[in-house]
Design a protein around this nucleic acid. Structure first.
Lengths: 99, 99
DNA sequence: GGCGTACATTACTACATAGTTATATAGTAA
DNA sequence: TTACTATATAACTATGTAGTAATGTACGCC
């Protein structure tokens, strides 16, 4: 009765996506984006984080496909690209990041 | 139109749970436990990790309520305590840790 | 008792990353 | 052009943690 051996590459990819969510400030950003598109500076205000810090968190979230970016003049607007995240948070914690 | 401000404590707790899953070897352990209860030494063999390392990973998973322990003589048997994890992995990656 | 086995824990090293500061880039406006 | 603004990036520091080796603990057997 051989058990399902999952390829390490799959586990790595999955762990990587979890890691992107394993940061309270990134969850705060996602929570803000739950209400709709936001510019970086709006997110800076809403989260109280530094601008460079927010940019880096957004980059992580974007590289993992959780958010998408739209540029308009000087501004960069971010929005959710994968709302499944909220379902996952619901399952994970009752009803946290989506409520 | 004030947006849902999630309490930092909630985000911390949620991020902490994600962090527990954000490690490929811990996912490998969960994947092994998908097939049922396993002793520590069985998990050492199945994962190819060191014994101390497996013990520490199991401790993390247990502190977060993902697995439970049953002691029997010299052995410690671990089992899934929260199979929702597999649903989450499915959503996260198509059908990874549960297939 | 002494010995061996299964697991847990400690101490340590190596590496990853969150946050900050400073700078770069790119667009706007005069 | 210069000046200003919004965002991105680079360099750095500080902290957290995965892995390992050694030790501790608890149980079973002789």
């Amino acid at each position: 009765m051989r058990r399902h051996r999952l390829p390490a590459a799959l586990l790595d990819r999955l762990a990587d996506r979890f890691k992107a969510l394993a940061e309270p400030n990134r969850l705060a950003i996602l929570s803000a984006l739950h209400g709709g598109e936001r510019s970086v500076s709006e997110l800076v205000v809403e989260t109280g984080l530094g601008q460079a810090n927010v940019s880096k968190h957004l980059d992580v979230l974007r590289r993992h496909g959780f958010v998408a970016r739209r540029k308009d003049g000087l501004n960069a607007f971010y929005r959710m690209a994968d709302r499944e995240v909220f379902r996952i948070c619901d399952i994970m914690c009752g009803s946290p990041a989506s409520s």
